Simulated scan of single mutants.
Amino acid sequence: MVKVLSINAGSSSLKFKLYSMPAEEVLVSGLVDRIGHQDGAFSYKVGDEKHESVQPIEDHTKGVQLVIDALLDSGVIKDKSEIVGVGHRVSHGGRKYEKSVEIDENVENEIDKLATVSPLHNPVNLAGIKAFEQLLPEARDVAVFDTSFHSTMPPEAYMYALPYEYYEKYGIRRYGFHGQSHQYVYSEVQRKFGDAQAAKIISCHLGNGASICAIKDGKSVNTSMGFTPLAGLVMGTRCGDIDPNIIPFIEENEHLSPDEMRTVMNKKSGLQGLSGVSNDVRDVLEAESAGNDRAKLALKVYVHQIQHYVGAYAADLNGLETLVFTAGVGEHSAPIRSRVCKQLGYLGVTIDEQKNKNNEFEIQGRDSKVKVLVIPTDEELVIARETSRIISK
């Protein structure tokens, strides 16, 4: 039995789970939230026992210290050396990292270089890595890249029709993200239903960030995010797919710098930009029911884009066996699932509206030719599995 810590660092948060491996038993799980604020929040759970506190959390190093102190105070570990591995979710691995790797100085430098194409994620992922290296120096650190699961995509799916030299010089291609989530979804379908039902899966990871993945026999063959996590679906604050000529047009007419334009596309667009209400689907649904026309439009665009990708990926798979909804919206928003599936009858998809409202595991109708599943994602478990595999070599 070894103890492995799974880390998912965000710009102002740090999710963690301590696992006993290979049993995959969760010993402690928790969240450090509002990092960088005086009213930072720290919560963790040991068995049925919950602990919560509000306190200043200056930076990620302070957050990591809180995690380690909690593990020691709870008695789950008696000494820091019991944690033999720390797995870190890292957004972008570029062309170099098609698999998870043990972290050294060279890996850290590459993660830093790739911050230009994943500016919202790679820098904070690296901050988390450095904080754990400082406070858990004996543990082996592993980078588990969002992009790795999608390294199996064929060239026709990942290449852009730009001058080939840009691919050679800069690695400009589709990479895809949310790899741990899509990988977990596949493993759950395969575990519960076997290889046949898992042969052709479309996984819809719908959260504030969102992506869809076509999975054939356990391998990603296409995914909606691209060179960066900005491409594909309409998201909470990200625009998703747009005509690329829109970018210089707005920059010229609004007198914006490239950095300002990136902010518009990453933080002021999506549901937030269209609705003018919120980046949260729940808020936009509520505004729609109150008669807000922009909220109604935003949801139509949001749902249409999901339907568009499902149809395209059914073509990539030459059929569809299982449609999966996962992540915050996918797991909890029955109205969104219902609206998406209403236009998928041509694929043989029907849903049982009562099961859908109840957020049941299987929500397909009796006459559906496709299984429709709601699977709570577990990216931290995938990170722990990958970390355990690497440190056991």
Rank of each mutant, 00 (worst) to 15 (best):
S100H: 12
E321R: 14
S53D: 14
S118N: 06
E82T: 02
K45R: 15
N106L: 12
V301G: 00
G311Q: 03
M21G: 08
V76N: 00
V107F: 06
C204Q: 08
V76Y: 00
L31G: 05
E108M: 12
H121S: 08
R294Q: 12
V46A: 06
R339D: 11
S289F: 00
A231D: 13
Q354A: 15
G194Y: 07
N109Y: 01
G209M: 05
K130D: 01
K15P: 05
V76Q: 13
S100N: 13
I172Y: 01
T223S: 15
H178R: 04
V277I: 13
M159A: 13
N292A: 02
E58M: 15
R174I: 12
S224C: 09
N222A: 15
A287M: 10
S224N: 07
R174F: 09
M153Q: 15
K45C: 14
I83Q: 07
A23M: 10
V107S: 07
A314W: 02
Y166N: 07
A290R: 15
L136K: 07
K371T: 01
S29V: 02
S11I: 04
G273Q: 02
R191M: 02
Y164N: 12
G179T: 02
K80G: 04
E165L: 11
D316W: 14
L323Y: 09
V2D: 13
Q180F: 05
V277A: 03
G311M: 07
Q65H: 10
K300C: 06
S6R: 04
S220M: 12
R337A: 04
A287E: 11
